[in-house]
Design a protein around this nucleic acid. Sequence first.
DNA 1: ATTGTTAACATTGGATCCAATTTGAAGGTG
DNA 2: CACCTTCAAATTGGATCCAATGTTAACAAT
Lengths: 233, 233
Amino acid sequence: MKKDKHAVLSILRDKILSGALQQGDRLAEIPTAELLGVSRTPVRIAFRALEQEGLLTKLPRRGYQVRQITNDEIAGSVEVRGVLEGLAVRQIVEKDLAPGLTDTLRHCLQAGDELFAERSFNEAKVQAYVEINRQFHDCLVKGSQNNAIAMALQINEHLPMASVNALVFNPEQTEREYERLYYAHQQHHAIVQAITAGQGARAEALMKEHAQAALNSYEQLSASGVSKTIRSE
Amino acid sequence: MKKDKHAVLSILRDKILSGALQQGDRLAEIPTAELLGVSRTPVRIAFRALEQEGLLTKLPRRGYQVRQITNDEIAGSVEVRGVLEGLAVRQIVEKDLAPGLTDTLRHCLQAGDELFAERSFNEAKVQAYVEINRQFHDCLVKGSQNNAIAMALQINEHLPMASVNALVFNPEQTEREYERLYYAHQQHHAIVQAITAGQGARAEALMKEHAQAALNSYEQLSASGVSKTIRSE
DNA sequence: ATTGTTAACATTGGATCCAATTTGAAGGTG
DNA sequence: CACCTTCAAATTGGATCCAATGTTAACAAT
């Protein structure tokens, strides 16, 4: 049983995000190490990393605890993502465009257009869109040439529901979901248009609104209870 | 020789920030452990934490390296801090004011007023102002009731010069330094005024500008070469 | 002289062992 | 009966040991 370098960290993170470890569950080093079949050392390192990511909180002498993630906190994370990605696109406009950025953006737009060409959606296509969406946001952040933005986003990206890599999806209303994601994709078009036109403030505002829109749909869906989470990677 | 919990992490961080470890220096676990008189385990944990903070980069099989922090990166960090703290003050206005927040803010303003009462500045007073400044920014971030902001800022706070906890100071021009810091303090007044008046957008804009102003003075001072860094804690 | 192979070295990753500290309970005492 | 004391169990933090792997240098062969 060969373990990868970051296997312990990834396994624990997935267990938390997938709900295998419920919010509030206490985690001690020794039981976790035995559960995963490894020693305490990688578990300790993983616990500290997960604490840094905000998924675990440290209880003084009683181990770690899976952190409560409230809806308010998700809303806050989305807001943070909005301003940071907004800053990214503004700085893209303010600086010289990184080479290849417009190509990647155009590619994302076109791939999305093809996906939305026929007016129907299933889970596989949502999965594909999540990947396109991830690439779109990723290249904007990288394109800002401001590494601090990526670093600040890094923590939020690990939080469930606040990340670009996670989309909620209601399998019972594919029609409506098509509309929702198509609207998001149209926002992508508008953002690229603003960037290429040198409209930094408009691009920034669109980006903030784009994040907010994702939040609104999350709130609607999570309230209905029939949502399904689709994550990339 | 009793070592604190986070002593190793703090010592290494200080060595990097103070310049005792030059940019580009390579760090291996064993020599570092011997240097600090501890075992490899805490050093390993500290290295990973410092990597997460962006102060070290991992070289595949050749240990860690003190990361190059360019001026562009500092500028980027300051920009990030601006939008995040701007978001914080906007959300303070949008939400119900946290109890005690206005008291703390007023206290910071008053303490600063007293510090600036006589038109002279020395290093001790700068130190005092750094602490007031830290408290001011800290309670705004906390007052936003959005933990994601604090988490996103956390990484940037460890970068030299991008943090509120670090101020550059030119000891040869105390007159001018008085003016500079007094200007920053007046911005604090304006921010509090905007918050209490419910002017969210104005507060946000002021906060962004406030961060930017600190950057401008840093660029001037670091170019002159006679600056001195004063950090809190 | 250059290049390929091999062996020693350096370095990290994981496992286990030891120490310190706190929690919790149980028992004794006022 | 309540409260204080003390001891044991649990748990984390640090140290050392072992394994795996990559890097470098030396040496030999062409």
